[in-house]
Design a protein around this nucleic acid. Structure first.
Length: 918
DNA sequence: AACTTCACG
DNA sequence: GACGTACGTGAAGTTG
């Protein structure tokens, strides 16, 4: 069946203009909108042979300023500012582009493009054709009354149907004109009825059926502004209706058959693309069939040749090294990668460095291969010290950009060789800032996604298990293939990702938040924090004793031995053998024995298992503390530095938070007295102290700002206790109980609340929980608006944003599984708040070093970040001077980009250990 | 490797 | 009318 695509060219070019950066072609002409337009047309025409693809296509344009609508109403479209100066010359180019595709360009004096589209739609339907309107103009949505008509919004890459009309305007396409007549349209200056917006308009039309019935019913409506306006402005509404109604009987300038699509012609299109220098599109022309599918693409990126592993050079003499260095200098940028003997950057030895200058132009410089076995022959390679001495000036050259993938690792390794890499770009961070939530950001995955290339697997080079080699034991040929490929791929990714940053509006978050943090984190990780093994080992043996005693007591109660640490065995003992009621089995058939469940049993004074369960809870706590902290941390102390060096991941948390591994220093116990003792093992060097600075209630403050909740803002401005204030608002009195409940509700709001979730936490019924939620929304208007707006935007665009423009994608928001969808919705509600908080502390971290240095405080070292807390080690004598600087940098970290409407509170503590500083 | 639990913000 | 839950992490232990 024929399928006609009608492209609303005029509306498209305006949107393309505003969405794309101001590109110019080699002739200096502005072509941003033309590029977007050309790429879209191509995509459409290219779908010719696909199911649902076009068989007929036309581009419809507005011809003149004056139409019948101006005769009806002289103010129609009168408020439109003139087209931007650099857009005007692009209009004729659109016609060129259309002609280059051999597509008809249809325009007619006295008619708007919308009227022509309506008329063609009607004609095509009469022939039984399918019609797709390529536009997102809401007026055109009126045409979707017939099931054979849909719309395609290429800007958002979204198909729209009648349901989208219902979602957006509350009525189907057949009633859309009536609603538009009532609400008006500020863009086209259609007046509508004053005081009537989309909600009221939809309500009225749903109630009365059509515009005339609404107007007729007006005198009987309840007295008020709405009734008066409907009566007084009835004619305005009727006029508006005429203005928004599409003319569908315009004589067709070209017959339908003339719109048949022929496919993409080579010569004229090539000429057009060459004239404008649209290289990406040109390269596609030669290989339309086998071009990789590209989800995101910024203009000006050329296709790369496939990786040629055998073309990489192994650099083993100084002349060759100097050659690579010279060309890097000349070019101004180079991709680098380091190979080491292990995975821990603070301990592993440098084994080699690779560099890439262009696709397939890459080398590997072995520096520490062989020599682990005294009988093995060492391969010929450069002297490490000599090579490092030559590389250092390049890696520190302010005129040469160093590009790495997870460059933090290389910075730490090279930092130990006395090199401070700068300036730099990091492709793992770029990928994260562009695509968080869509996929992982490891090099192998990105190479597969963006380059259709599968990298040599590290495991294939070094082996696995007990036969695993370290990289220095790999022979040079294989090492070169692997290492040089990494640099090559990094370079290719950089060329692919870098242009997308500006194109997709994440330059600010990349440049002002995440990129600077790479060097800051490298420094923090290299520094590490001193851990007193004596304190830990004392705690370990205390815990061991208590654990053994508890174990004996527990076994005495049951009368037989079992593995207390096995949830399966424990569940069987409690619920089957001891007969405790109310055991709940999960989907794997095991009773749940988590802390909630055990506390529920313990709360029942008559339960036969009460004594046992209390002991198990203690046993669990102590086992956790011993194995995860007091034992493990001792083993993590670096013997060379006597300190513990965590590794932070910039891409670990979808929201933009950092995460910490090996060991995780972001979950050191603090909530119980027993656990808190572990923090006393994190100490300062003699003559120094630990300073801990944390943001107070930062997420609630940000919620108050972002959702614009007056009561919360005032409370924070006055320095009130926010949970007490909430308790007063919700329950009318403040005591321990109501304050605790209020605190729970405050957090629940940040996490995307559900009545069941809240009910479980507060031990009330879901109905009661719902009543509290309603009251919260009533008392703090803004919150529910924030939730609705955030979800709507997330569903429309596929991602949420923070105040600083950080995106988190939520592809599962459209999942068909309601649970999955609900989970994504809660995550999407939380992401802007958690993410903004992450942005703010990251900005503070990036500015902290320079601010302290400016004050002459070179000895103050930033050691740890725990989401809303920064931990420092500094000479005791520097505390007085450093304190106000740290406070100021943290409190003002959002500025100048964002002026928050709430103050950011910072609390600081100082002591000989982390525990004492709290 | 999956599952469960629990440490943190 | 069913779904069976707060958001974001990482590590250790048991089990298969």
């Amino acid at each position: 069946m024929p399928h006609l695509y009608l492209v609303d060219g005029s509306s498209y070019i305006f949107r393309a203009y505003h969405r794309l950066p101001p590109l110019t072609n080699k002739h200096g002409e502005p072509v941003g909108a033309v590029y977007g337009y050309t790429a879209m047309l191509w995509k459409l025409v290219d779908a010719l042979h696909k199911a649902d693809g076009p068989t007929h296509m036309a581009v419809i344009l507005d011809k003149s300023e004056h139409t019948f609508r101006n005769d009806l109403y002289d103010q129609y479209k009168a408020h439109r500012p003139p087209a931007p100066e650099d857009l005007v010359p692009q209009f004729p180019m659109i016609r060129d582009a259309t002609r280059a595709f051999s597509l008809p360009c249809i325009e007619e004096l006295g008619w708007e493009a919308d009227d022509l589209i309506a008329s063609y739609t009607k004609a095509a339907l009469a022939q039984g054709w399918q019609v797709t309107i390529v536009s997102s103009d809401k007026d055109l949505m009126q045409l979707m009354t017939d099931p054979s008509v849909d719309m395609l919004d290429t800007m958002n890459n979204r198909r729209m149907g009648p349901d989208d009309t219902r979602e957006k305007f509350g009525v189907g396409p057949e009633k859309l004109g009536e609603v538009l007549a009532l609400m008006g349209d500020s863009v086209d200056n259609v007046p509508g009825v004053p005081g009537v917006g989309p909600k009221t308009a939809a309500k009225l039309i749903l109630e009365h059926g059509d515009l005339e019935s609404v107007l007729a019913a007006a005198p009987e409506m309840k007295k008020g502004k709405l009734r008066d306006n409907l009566i007084e402005h009835a004619d305005l509404a009727r006029l508006s209706h005429k203005l928004v109604t599409l003319a569908c009987d315009v004589p067709l300038p070209e017959p339908l058959e003339a719109l048949e699509l022929q496919g993409i012609p080579d010569a004229p299109l090539r000429a057009f693309l060459e004239h404008h220098g649209f290289k990406t599109l040109l390269s596609r022309l030669s290989s339309v069939a086998d071009a990789p599918v590209e989800t995101h693409e910024a203009p000006g990126v050329e296709e790369d040749p496939p990786c040629n592993h055998d073309g990489y050079e192994t650099v083993t003499d100084l002349d060759a090294l100097d050659r690579w260095i010279t060309v890097s200098r000349h070019q101004g940028w180079v991709a680098i990668d380091t190979e080491t003997s292990g995975l821990d950057a603070t301990q592993a030895d440098l084994v080699g460095v690779s560099m890439a200058l262009a696709p397939n132009l890459a080398c590997y410089i072995p520096l520490g291969h062989g020599g682990t076995d005294m009988f093995a022959e060492k391969p010929v390679q450069l002297d490490r010290a000599e090579a490092i001495a030559r590389l250092k000036p390049l890696l520190e050259d302010p005129a040469v950009l160093k590009i790495g993938h997870n460059l933090k690792y290389d910075m730490i390794v090279l930092g130990r060789a006395g090199i401070r890499v700068a300036p730099y770009d990091d492709t793992i961070v770029m990928s994260f800032d562009l695509d968080a939530g869509l996929h992982g950001h490891g090099m192998d995955e990105l190479a597969a996604t963006h380059l259709a290339h599968s990298c040599i697997a590290y495991k294939d080079v070094v082996g696995t298990g007990k036969n695993q080699l370290h990289f220095g034991q790999v022979d040079l040929k294989a090492a070169t293939r692997y290492a040089a490929e990494d640099a090559d791929v990094t370079l290719r990714l950089w060329r692919r990702l870098k242009p997308r940053l500006a194109y997709e509006s994440v330059t600010r978050v990349y440049e002002s938040v995440d990129r600077p943090l790479v060097a800051v984190l490298a420094e923090m990780e290299s520094t590490g924090i001193k851990v007193d093994a004596g304190v830990l080992s004392k705690l370990s043996s205390d815990f061991a004793q208590q654990i053994a005693a508890l174990e004996e007591e527990i076994h005495a109660i049951t009368g037989f031995k079992f593995t207390i640490g096995s949830p399966k065995q424990l569940g069987d003992v409690l619920f089957d053998k001891m007969g405790i009621k109310g055991g709940r089995k999960g989907k794997s058939g095991v009773y749940s024995t988590d802390v909630n469940e055990l506390e529920r049993i313990a709360a029942d004074k008559d339960s036969p298992g009460r004594e046992m369960v209390l002991k198990v809870l203690d046993w669990r706590q102590l086992s956790k503390l011993k194995s995860t902290y007091t034992d493990a941390l001792q083993a993590q102390i670096n013997p060379q530095t006597g300190r513990v060096h965590t590794s932070y991941s910039l891409t670990g948390a979808q929201t933009g938070r950092l995460s910490s591994t090996d060991p995780n220093l972001q979950n050191i116990p603090v909530r119980t007295e027993t656990g808190r003792q572990i923090r006393d093992a994190f100490v300062a060097e003699p003559g120094n102290v630990i300073l801990s600075a944390d943001y107070s209630q930062i997420e609630l403050r940000l919620a108050a700002h972002i959702a614009d909740v007056p009561a919360l803002r005032t409370a924070f401005a006055n320095g009130d206790d926010i949970h007490s204030m909430t308790a007063m608002e919700l329950f009318g009195e403040v005591n321990r109980d109501t304050r605790g409940r209020a605190k729970t509700i405050n957090f629940a709001i940040l996490y995307g609340i559900s009545r069941w979730g809240l009910a479980g936490r507060l031990d009330v019924t879901p109905d009661e929980a719902q009543a509290m939620i309603n009251r919260y929304f009533e008392r703090f208007p803004g919150i529910n608006r924030y939730i609705a707006d955030t979800l709507r935007e997330a569903k429309e665009r596929g991602y949420t944003t923070t105040l600083f423009g950080r995106k988190t994608h939520f592809p599962r928001l459209k999942a068909s599984n309601p649970n999955e969808r609900a989970g994504s919705e809660r995550a999407a509600i939380n992401a802007p708040i958690q993410g903004t908080s992450a942005d703010i502390i990251k900005r503070a971290m990036a500015r902290m070093g320079p601010a302290l240095r400016e004050a002459g405080l070179e000895k103050v070292r930033m050691l740890l970040q725990v989401h809303d807390e920064l931990v420092f080690e500094l000479p005791e004598g520097d505390v007085a001077a450093a304190r106000p600087i740290i406070e100021r940098v943290m409190a003002t970290a959002a500025e100048p980009a964002i002026q928050l409407t709430v103050p950011l509170g910072v609390e600081i503590g100082v002591g000989p250990s982390w525990g004492a500083a709290h």
